[in-house]
Design a protein around this nucleic acid. Structure first.
Lengths: 332, 332
DNA sequence: ATCTGTCTGTCAATCGATTGCAAAGAGTGA
DNA sequence: TCACTCTTTGCAATCGATTGACAGACAGAT
C-alpha cells in the first residue's frame, strides 16, 4: 500500500479512503478512480490483519458446532453465513468454524482461541450445561449468541426451534393414528434439544392416555449405527409399542434398517417417526415421517441477532422459538 | 499487555518474551514465573491479530471443501486439523473452513479472502479445472496444497487417494464374482476423482472381457436422491447389467432404496458396490460393499505437507497416492 | 477585500505485539 | 583490579492499515 501511494504520488491515507466503502466520498472522484484502477492493476490486496488491529473489529465470527457431519447443523450454519454476507452495505464476515464433539475441554479451548483472535461475536450451536461458565465469561467480552441448543441458566440471545412443540406434534400424530402404546428412542441428555423433545412428547401422551413403557430408552449417540442397536430395546418393552418416536432421523434410519433385517413391516408392524427431516428421509424406500427442522428460520434469526449485537444494539427480548412442522410420509 | 507490564514494573518486551514459547529462555526464570502468574491472574489474552501483523504469520490455514455435508471430506479435514495441532512445539493453527459448492466464483472469492487474511497456507479439497488459475495465482503468494482432488495441470504438492486403483479393484471383484455385464453410475465430471474411478474400472473390464453398456450413466450430483433416480437408467441398459459400481456410497444408497421399492433383491438380482465406506454403509440392512477411502493417510499427509512448506522447506517430490482397500459386504 | 464553507488531501498517532540492538549488571579468570 | 563474557532487561522500530485534526485551494456571499 505504501508502494501504491508512492507510485501515485498521494498519501497512504488517501489510498485507504479511496478503496474503502464508506469513506470513499471524502476523496475526489478523479483521484478515487485513479487509485482504484492502479490498485486493481497492481494486484493490491488489503491486509485484513492490520485492518483488524486498527479498528477493534476483525470482521470474523466464531462458530461452534458439536458435529460437522450433522446435516441440520450444517444447514443452519450455511444459512447464517449466507445471511451475514448478504446485506449490501455490510463488509464480508468470515466465519471461523470448529467442532466441539460435545467435549467441554474442546469447547473451552476453542472459545479461548476465538477470543484471542478477536472475533466480533461467537455463535454456539454446541452449548451443553458444561459450557455455561465459559460462555458466560466469553459473553463479557464479545456478543455470544446461542442457536439450536438453548441454555436455561444463561439467558443469552438465542435462535431456537421449539423442540417441546415438535415432540408434542409427533405424539398427537401417533394418537390420531390410533396407537395405544408408543415409545421414544431418546438422544443423549447433554443437549437441551432432546430433553425438550422427550418432555413435549410425554406430556401429550399423558394427556391423551397413551401408554409409554416405564423404562426410558437412551441412545448414547444420536446416529444411525446406535439407532440400529436400539431396536432390541424397543422390542423388549412390554407391552410392545406399535410406534416409535426417534429423537432424530439418524436414529430412525438405524431403527428402520434393523427392522428390515428382521423382516418387520413399516408401518404395519411398527410405525416410526424421526426429527429434522434430513434429505435421506425422502430417499428411503419407506419414506420417513419426521418433524421438519426450521433451519432457515433459526439460521436467519441467529444471523440477525449477530449483526444487531455487533452493531452495538442492546440484547433484544428473548423471542419465541420457531415451531417446527410435521411431515407425514409412509413410515407412520 | 501494556497494563500488565506497568503493574509489574517491567518492559512490555519482557512480558512478551516471558509468555512466548521459544524466547522464554531469554528471561530470568524468576521474572518469567512472576509474569506468567500475573498474566494468568489478570486473565490476559494475547491479541493474535497484532501478533499476526508483526510476524508475517497468522497461524491460520485456509481450507476449501466442496461440500460440508460429505462425511469423507469432513473426515479428511478432521485428520488435518488434528495433525496440525498435535506436534508439541507447534503453536496452535486455526483452520478457516469454507465451502465452495463446486462454484468457481465462490472458490475465487474465498481464496481472495484467505489471502487478505494472510493465511499461512491454503489446502484445497475442492479443486476443479475451473479453479486452476486462481490456485496458481495463490500459489505464488502462499503454499497451496491439494488434497483428495488432484489437478493435472498444476503439479502442486498433493495428498491423494489412488482413485484409478479403487475403480480397478471394484472391477476385479465383479469379475471374480462372475459378472459378465456391469455398469457404472458416474459422479459429476468436474472432479478428477470420478474420472479416475471410471477409467480404472473400465480398463479392468476391458482387460477381463466384461461388458459395459455403451451409453455412460452420469449422475448430476453425487448424492442419494440423485442415485435413486438413476436406477431407471441402469434397468434400461441392455443387456441388463448384473452389477453396478456407483461412484460413491451416497449414490449407491440411493440406488439400493430404489431397488427396494421395486422389490429387487440385492445382490441376487443386482449387485451394488460403492466408494468411500461411509458409516451408513454398515448400517444398511444389506450392508454395502465399498472401497474404503484412506481418510487418515490422506489427511495426515496433507497436514505434513502444510507444516513442511510453512516451515520454509521446498516443495517435495510428488509422492505416490494412497491405494484404497475393498471392503466386501453383502451387497455383492 | 474579507469571511464562510466545501472539497481534497496530508500529517501523524494509533491499534498490540515482536525483535534487533544496546546497555546494565553479575560472574570469571588473569 | 581490569578486561571480558554471559545473562537479563530496556529501548525503539516495525508490521499495514485507519482516522481525527488540520491545512490549502477555491467559490460564493457580503
Amino acid at each position: 500500500m505504501k508502494e501504491l501511494a508512492e507510485r501515485l504520488g498521494v498519501d497512504r491515507s488517501t489510498v485507504s479512503r479511496a478503496l474503502s466503502e464508506d469513506k470513499a466520498h471524502l476523496v475526489g472522484s478523479e483521484t478515487r478512480e485513479k487509485v482504484r484502477k492502479m490498485a486493481m492493476a497492481s494486484g493490491y490486496r488489503p491486509d485484513l490483519t492490520a485492518a483488524a488491529l486498527r479498528r477493534g473489529r476483525s470482521q470474523t465470527v466464531g462458530v461452534l458446532v458439536p458435529d460437522l457431519e450433522n446435516e441440520t447443523f450444517i444447514g443452519v450454519i450455511r444459512t447464517i453465513i449466507g445471511a451475514l454476507n448478504s446485506g449490501a452495505g455490510t463488509p464480508a464476515t468470515t466465519p471461523l468454524i470448529a467442532e466441539t464433539q460435545d467435549r467441554p475441554a474442546d469447547a473451552r479451548r476453542l472459545i479461548e482461541t476465538y477470543l484471542s483472535r478477536r472475533v466480533d461475536a461467537i455463535i454456539s450451536l454446541a452449548s451443553t450445561e458444561a459450557d455455561e461458565e465459559v460462555l458466560a465469561e466469553a459473553a463479557r467480552e464479545v456478543p455470544v449468541i446461542l442457536a439450536v441448543r438453548s441454555l436455561a441458566a444463561l439467558s443469552l440471545p438465542s435462535a431456537l426451534c421449539d423442540d417441546r412443540a415438535g415432540g408434542a406434534i409427533v405424539a398427537r400424530h401417533f394418537a390420531a393414528c390410533g396407537h395405544k402404546t408408543v415409545c421414544q428412542v431418546r438422544g443423549p441428555l447433554l443437549a437441551t434439544t432432546f430433553k425438550n423433545r422427550a418432555q413435549g412428547f410425554s406430556a401429550v401422551c399423558a394427556e391423551k392416555g397413551i401408554h409409554e413403557p416405564a423404562a426410558a430408552i437412551h441412545a448414547e449417540h444420536a446416529n444411525s449405527a446406535t439407532g440400529k442397536q436400539m431396536l432390541d430395546a424397543v422390542m423388549r418393552a412390554s407391552p410392545r409399542p406399535t410406534a416409535v418416536f426417534a429423537h432424530n432421523d439418524a436414529l430412525a434410519i438405524g431403527l428402520i434398517e434393523a427392522m428390515r433385517e428382521r423382516g418387520l413391516r413399516i408401518p404395519e408392524d411398527i410405525a416410526v417417526a424421526g426429527f429434522n427431516d434430513i434429505k435421506m428421509a425422502q430417499v428411503l424406500a419407506t419414506p420417513l415421517t419426521t418433524v421438519a427442522y426450521p433451519i432457515e428460520a433459526v439460521g436467519r434469526h441467529a444471523a440477525q441477532l449477530v449483526r444487531s449485537l455487533i452493531a452495538g444494539n442492546p440484547a433484544p427480548e428473548q423471542s419465541a422459538p420457531f415451531v417446527p412442522e410435521l411431515v407425514i410420509r409412509r413410515s407412520t
